[in-house]
Design a protein around this nucleic acid. Structure first.
Lengths: 190, 190
DNA sequence: TGTTCCATGTAATAAGTTACATGATTTA
DNA sequence: TAAATCATGTAACTTATTACATGGAACA
């Protein structure tokens, strides 16, 4: 599980590295991220290995673009990756590692501040995802269950994203309440 | 956000690389993973940089163990990491990347199979987490809100783990139903 | 007597981040 | 005229994975 297969997957339509980065920012960021400085060399490498091919095209605005598309070999590689079944057991969620060690901070105030920052982030993220869904649903009457395959399955990840961020936001609020309650108890018994 | 700070965090108690790997398997796996072949060199490096120190001790059973503990410098580094606030926007969830590209598989049967595999995995994981919680709660009457700090915050991550895996399991089932419904519709209109 | 657990490491390779470098066009 | 967007890359470094290497003790 690495950037390689994501690039192959994203190239259902011919795109440039720059376009790909935008798709990361719009939708993939929920479960993966990559910098341009990783994307460009990786595209080049995939072309060297015969999984992609590219050509330069003129841009409407700005410099020339290098547009990549999948080869037959790239198609096979992508399919093989999906056929191996779900890639599990390697999730990475940095802020949960931090919460796990939160007792190392010096004060309850600092811990509450940490959790409130996390809550605010989740609240914004949920807003973003919900308005993305609303926009999509307004723009396409086929949303969600009559969408063509290419969008139907991508919509699944938006659906789960919303459910998860919602659950995480609730958890933040519950956790903050639990800490505050604990602080009050400690003050009372002191 | 990398292994470094997780090792510092986990060394609230002196432990060996082997012990640390076990803690990954027991609880941290929900949000991070690391191999022994990454853990051992990283511990060595942290000692070289003065964030940890180690000594060899005899083991009750098996070869000698090298046990690491945090130095004052390591403590400061850990605290600074937590004080920077939640590390967000770098989540990695490989199977969601796969779902995003699921239309690339050749048949609905293959897509349903993928989602069922994912569902089974989530069901097992939920079982594991729920029985971990049950065991903990049976073993310690302070569970969860009267636990000492070192466990109180770690319990937060178990709580969120359960909520999330539960939501993901529901989503798997809903998604399978949506695909099956779509397949029936397609057959009817054909 | 075979498998799992205990226990630690190295070497080669792959993947990812941060910093550097350039320059046109569009929008405020 | 300043900032944002469009567009592509390289270099140096850090982080992580896979494969290799060893060997005793406990368990089934």
């Amino acid at each position: 599980m690495s950037l390689k297969h994501i690039l192959l997957g994203i190239l259902r339509e011919p795109q440039s590295g720059y376009d790909i980065k935008n798709e990361f920012n719009r939708s993939l960021k929920n479960f993966w991220n990559a910098n341009l400085s990783q994307i460009y060399p990786e595209l080049k490498k995939l072309e060297t290995n015969g999984l992609l091919r590219s050509k330069q095209v003129e841009s409407a605005s700005g410099p020339n673009r290098r547009v990549y598309r999948r080869t037959a070999k790239g198609n096979r590689e992508l399919k093989a990756w999906l056929q191996k079944g779900p890639s599990v057991g390697e999730e990475r969620i940095g802020y949960l590692a931090q919460v796990y060690f939160l007792s190392e901070l010096d004060s309850d105030a600092e811990r509450i501040e940490f959790m409130k920052e996390l809550r605010d982030h989740m609240a914004h993220w949920l807003d973003y995802l919900e308005s993305a869904e609303k926009g999509w649903s307004n723009d396409d009457p086929r949303y969600p269950d009559a969408l063509p395959d290419e969008f139907f399955y991508a919509q699944f990840t938006l659906d789960l994203g919303i459910r998860r961020v919602r659950a995480t936001l609730e958890w933040c609020n519950d956790s903050i309440a639990r800490i505050e309650h604990r602080v009050r108890d400690a003050a009372r018994s002191a």
